[in-house]
């Protein structure tokens, strides 16, 4: 179990990072940063990105990746906007929006099943496949809308900007999804098989696990959550367009990597996406505060995220190696204490 979840130190390091960022930014901007208003504002921005990062970390867990998530989110949002607008005259705004929500989630599930089926049947690396479906989904959405922004009925506003006891609804939704996924991945038989496929799809196949089923379900889950992200995006602005959130893919990957889920699969905790999102949101807010008035601010932000992605990946790899070495040493020394000889024969 411990081998699958990754090291405890990493959890502590991540918590420390979040706290450290908060302290540093609070010292730099004592009058604006450590305020309730700022904290709630940050929380209200986290949901779409956090949900997208969950998609990446889920697919990371089985040794894959889903690059089509932003395209799926937009396609879902467009489906929601168009169906709810079309049905508003007959069903009224709330009823039409409800159908729109269903349409959005259906788009996500279908897109996910397409991704999963292609990945499991073609046995090509998921990077080219989901890159292809990203173009496919964007293409279809562009064709349907002609590239024009679609507007909804406006009755989903509470999801985008509503609060319950001051906490943004979208943030609560994100937390609920994270907790649900944490339970699915670590407590269920399906979750066990996800870790197995991620650890080695070859070994899983020889163990006669149904690898294809696990892959299809995981990508389906990823598509489903991507469409929830799309819904949150749509609810916030009451608008949907194929080009929204174009810079979020790299951010979602960065958050997933920062959460410690191994991009090679089979290791990590989805729960930590929560901490990673909080960390990243602070970095983003920090950059905005520092460079807000400079023309190149968004440039600098992307540059920083690129550097961070590579740095975190490299660091994780190092930590992983050291961890494994330690684990091996530990079990060896215990065996020696027990006085048991290691009968052994390499092939």
């Amino acid at each position: 179990m411990e081998a699958r979840l990754g090291s405890r130190q990493y959890v502590i390091a991540l918590i420390a990072l979040v706290v450290l960022l908060f302290v540093i930014l609070s010292i730099l901007a004592p009058s604006t940063y450590p305020t309730l208003r700022n904290v709630l504002s940050m929380a209200s921005q986290m949901a779409p990105l956090g949900l997208l990062a969950l998609c990446v970390s889920l697919t990371f867990l089985i040794g894959g990746i889903d690059l089509s998530i932003v395209a799926v989110a937009n396609a879902g949002a467009i489906a929601a906007a168009m169906t709810s607008t079309a049905l508003e005259p007959s069903l009224g705004a709330p009823g039409a929006s409800l159908v729109g929500v269903a349409a959005c989630l259906a788009v996500g599930v279908i897109a996910g099943v397409i991704n999963g089926t292609l990945v499991s049947q073609l046995r090509v690396h998921p990077i080219p496949i989901t890159l292809g479906t990203m173009a496919l989904f964007t293409g279809i959405a562009t064709g349907v809308t002609g590239g024009a922004t679609q507007f909804g009925t406006g009755s989903l506003g509470f999801l985008g900007s509503g609060t319950i006891a001051m906490v943004p609804v979208s943030f609560l939704l994100f937390v609920i999804v994270v907790l649900a996924l944490a339970i699915i991945t670590t407590k269920t038989r399906f979750g066990f098989k996800m870790y197995a496929v991620g650890a080695s799809d070859k070994v899983s196949r020889f163990a006669r696990l149904e690898v294809e089923k696990v892959q299809v379900r995981t990508y389906m889950l990823s598509g489903f959550i991507a469409s929830i992200a799309g819904l949150v995006m749509f609810a916030g602005s009451n608008a949907a367009n194929v080009s929204f959130g174009s810079s979020w893919l790299i951010l979602a990957i960065l958050i997933a990597v920062l959460s410690g889920v191994d991009p090679y699969g089979g290791k990590g905790r989805v729960l930590l996406v929560l901490l990673a999102v909080v960390g990243m949101q602070q970095v983003q807010t920090g950059i905005n505060m520092a460079l807000g008035r400079w023309d190149g601010a968004s440039f600098a932000a992307e540059f920083t995220f690129g550097v961070l992605l590579i740095a975190v990946l490299g660091l994780n790899r190092r930590l992983g190696k050291a961890e494994r070495r330690k684990l091996r040493k530990k079990s060896k020394s215990e065996e020696i204490q027990q006085g048991e000889p290691t009968l052994a024969t390499p092939a």
Binding site: A3, R4, A196, A199, S200, K202, V203, F206, G266, K267, R324
Partner: peptide, 8 residues
């Protein structure tokens, strides 16, 4: 390579 999840 076929039988065990070695890290597990």
């Amino acid at each position: 390579t076929e039988g065990l999840f070695l890290d597990w």
